[in-house]
């Protein structure tokens, strides 16, 4: 049973999150501020920290940066501020994901599961590349941004971005629709139940020179899809 440590100063939210996550088969410990966080980490195995940004005493950003100096435990930042700036700073401080209040509890659950799945994968989270580049295009996985070869921002929906990232990270491999659905689930709540084919055609329209004769995302007959461009990670 994965152990989640929730650092949250609002007692009511803390209680409700605990109750909700326990119902979803997690073990949950709670702290009202960041003072005892180190001891909690030493006391027992912690699989993930839910860290509120605005805490009494040391704030979430500085806690996150401090934790990152000696621990690679996955961190999801939760904050009642939703400025773009906060999100980027939070992720750059070493958080694995970012959720702004008010959040949908089901999305919180999905994010927790996705981060835990990534953490248990062979590659440690810290080693994952932030930037992926292909055919002049550039993906910033941290702030979820795509730029074309001229440096122009291309807006993708969350589901499209998740699918592109999954394809990119597994370039050169044929992925079936079932595999893609499985890999993208949990990354973004709105990809659930969406046809992979629709997402692929929308992606092609945005990144392919000729969407009817795709050169980057190729269809493999009776197999699925293949990311054909060469990907460089940095």
């Amino acid at each position: 049973m994965p152990h989640i440590l929730s650092v949250e100063d609002d007692a009511e939210i803390s209680r409700l999150v605990g109750r909700y996550l326990r119902a979803a088969d997690f073990r949950v410990s709670m702290l009202p501020d960041g003072r005892k966080i180190e001891r909690a980490l030493e006391d027992g195995r912690v699989d993930l920290i839910l860290l509120d940004l605005m805490l009494p005493g040391e704030d979430g950003l500085s806690l996150c940066r401090r934790l990152r100096t000696h621990s690679s435990v996955p961190i999801i930042m939760v904050t009642a501020k939703s400025d773009e700036f906060d999100r980027i700073v939070g992720l750059e401080m070493g958080a694995d994901d970012y959720l702004s209040k008010p959040f949908n509890p089901r999305e919180l659950l999905a994010r927790i599961r996705a981060v835990l799945r990534r953490a248990s994968a062979a590659t440690p989270i810290a080693d994952r590349a932030r930037y992926l580049a292909f055919s002049g295009w550039r993906i910033d996985c941290l702030v979820r941004e795509l730029k074309d070869p001229n440096g122009t921002r291309i807006v993708l929906t969350g589901a499209e971005f998740g699918l592109l990232q999954v394809l990119c990270e597994r370039a050169g491999r044929v992925l079936s629709r079932e595999q893609l659905l499985d890999l993208t689930q949990g990354r973004s709540i709105d990809s659930l139940g969406r046809s992979i084919d629709v997402l692929i055609s929308r992606l092609r329209r945005k990144i392919e020179r000729d969407p009817h004769d795709p050169g980057i995302i190729k269809t493999v007959r009776s197999g699925g899809y293949l990311f054909a461009a060469k990907v460089e990670a940095s």
Binding site: D10, E12, L16, R19, Y20, A80, K101, P105
Partner: peptide, 21 residues
């Protein structure tokens, strides 16, 4: 703005969580 947004978002978060039960 910061205070209002923080407090309102915190309240809505509580209510959303309570809705789950």
């Amino acid at each position: 703005l910061a205070a209002v947004s923080h407090d309102l978002r915190t309240s809505i978060t509580r209510l959303r969580l309570q809705c789950e039960f």
